[in-house]
Design a protein around this nucleic acid. Structure first.
Lengths: 205, 205
DNA sequence: GCGCAGCCATGACATTTGTCATCACTGCTG
DNA sequence: CAGCAGTGATGACAAATGTCATGGCTGCGC
């Protein structure tokens, strides 16, 4: 193989991004060729620098999270492998990420040493998913919610009254209540607000 | 002065902690003498290593957040200056931190270079608060909520029904509804759930 | 001491929400 | 085609919630 593994680093926290970049630069087979602080910026950087591996933070400002960037890269720059690092690993996020073609999914609790190894493994065509997160995802299983149930739950997430949700979803208030009720029952919650919380924890919204 | 500035680093994310430690080690007047991944651990490390400056993440597992650790250190190890780094800066947190005697409050979006400068400044007896966070805190102002209102709102935060909140607060359900109602009015929210969200954003809970 | 703010409670009332039964329509699958 | 799951709606009823008035109690400052 010719040269080092070219890495793109995307994280909105400058402190972390810079620090990780510095640590990775210790590894003489890795080269951080670009850094980005938002989803769109990451995409632009990837287009410009064509990295071998993109290491993306899950939550980023700018309307695009790490998974969205990964999905875009998959079609635009298929050669580039993608991986996600995240603070709080929600099971649903892992699934979304894998569907988007992400090849590595690790929590930020890993050491830089370990991260470097995983980057190498992903670059070589391997996959890596944090065992604990994988276990959570399996135990949490798939979302039992239908598309509309999830949509309505999402709209109700910020505490808006049913009338508001109905308006925004272009549905009858009665229908909204029905969906909310069935969603709440499926998640075995006491009311829609705890239902929202549960769905959030599982990564289903 | 004799020797380097002795720094304690506390953050639950190993990747970040290690990376920041590495970056700070480039600065030849700084020495990271201890690292911790939780609040209680940070306290224990501080007792054992007696650092000059403690750099604490705001959100940490173990029931103690950065401010709680700072408060404990203030009385136990007054020589040690404390500072907080955080991902999302809520105005209320800043205030809580300053009350706890914290001398530096910075978002994780700063560069390591800048962090090093701030550590020096804090060690020398100075104070540093991120200008943007300070502006937010000023514009958000003080919490208009009374102690009980905030307490009840807190208990209602996870979507528990009023009866449950009343039980946990040892109050009459009617009283709980009154507090919730007045809190909601003060925050000009439509219902207690959006009230909770607003209070969260302002850092008042 | 008087007023005021906060704390705790009750009762009454309208509104919102949760739950259920029921219906119609669609698209898919055995 | 018959069955089934998902979508969208209505009506009815019970329960939870939001709002208001009212009252008593405490502690604080003028």
């Amino acid at each position: 193989m010719s040269g080092r593994i070219r890495v793109l680093l995307a994280d909105d926290e400058h402190l972390i991004r810079g620090a990780v970049a510095a640590l990775l630069s210790y590894e003489d087979d890795l080269l951080v060729v670009a850094e980005a602080a938002s989803g769109p910026e990451a995409l632009a950087m990837a287009r410009a620098h064509r990295p071998d591996v993109a290491v993306l933070d899950l939550q980023m400002p700018g309307g695009m999270d790490g998974v969205a960037v990964a999905a875009a890269l998959r079609s635009e720059l298929p050669v580039c492998r993608t991986m996600i690092v995240t603070s709080h690993g929600r099971p649903g996020h892992l699934k979304r990420a894998l569907v988007a073609g992400v090849r590595g999914f690790v929590p930020k609790t890993v050491s830089a040493q370990r991260l470097a190894e995983i980057i190498r493994s992903v670059h070589a065509g391997g996959r890596y998913v944090d065992p604990e997160l994988a276990a959570d995802a399996i135990s949490a299983g798939d979302s039992p919610l239908t598309a509309r149930e999830a949509e309505v739950l999402e709209l109700a997430a910020d505490g808006a009254p049913i009338a508001e949700v109905a308006r925004r979803a272009s549905l009858s208030p009665g229908t909204v209540r029905n969906y909310l009720s069935s969603a709440t029952a499926k998640l075995s919650a006491d009311n829609r607000h705890t239902a929202v919380r549960i769905a959030r924890e599982r990564g289903w919204v």
